[in-house]
């Protein structure tokens, strides 16, 4: 017997927040409606099978005017690993100068995703 389920979810790929209606059969997403761009369809499929999130946080930095450097994951990470990644970033210390996009924590927790600087930070 096919188990057909309809799930309503809000796309979080951008601030538009499209309301998506996804149909699932036997754990596989068969159709997505309500999205206004292709990212919505991908989001619904990922969210219902393997939810992923971007991570933004800060790391300590030495030698800059500020104490903290904002960082961002180069791509999405498994939702269930986000808190662990944030914890790992608390142990890291960067050193000024830093350029936007510089890798600050390569391959975080072995998940294959680099954490990079969000902005330039000059040495003082």
């Amino acid at each position: 017997m096919d188990k057909v389920q309809t799930k309503i979810l809000n796309c979080i790929m951008c601030p538009m927040g499209c309301e998506l209606t996804a149909t699932m059969e036997d754990g596989v997403v068969t159709s997505v409606k309500g999205n206004s761009c292709p990212r919505g369809e991908k989001y619904a499929k990922d969210e219902l099978t393997n939810p992923m999130r971007m991570l933004t946080s800060t790391v300590r930095i030495e030698g800059a005017a500020l104490h903290l450097l904002p960082v961002v994951s180069k791509s999405t990470l498994p939702k269930g690993k986000i808190l662990e990644c944030a914890e790992a970033l608390r142990e890291i210390k960067a050193k000024a100068p830093v350029k936007v996009g510089d890798v600050i924590a390569p391959n975080i927790l072995g998940l294959g995703v680099d954490i990079v600087a969000s902005r330039d930070m000059a040495a003082v």
Binding site: M54, T56, P70, V72
Partner: peptide
């Protein structure tokens, strides 16, 4: 420091500082 900025204006997703 969070992301979600820039999709309309720069056509790419950026953090605030970015």
């Amino acid at each position: 420091v969070h992301n979600g900025f820039g999709l309309h204006h720069f056509k790419e997703e950026l953090t605030g500082p970015g």
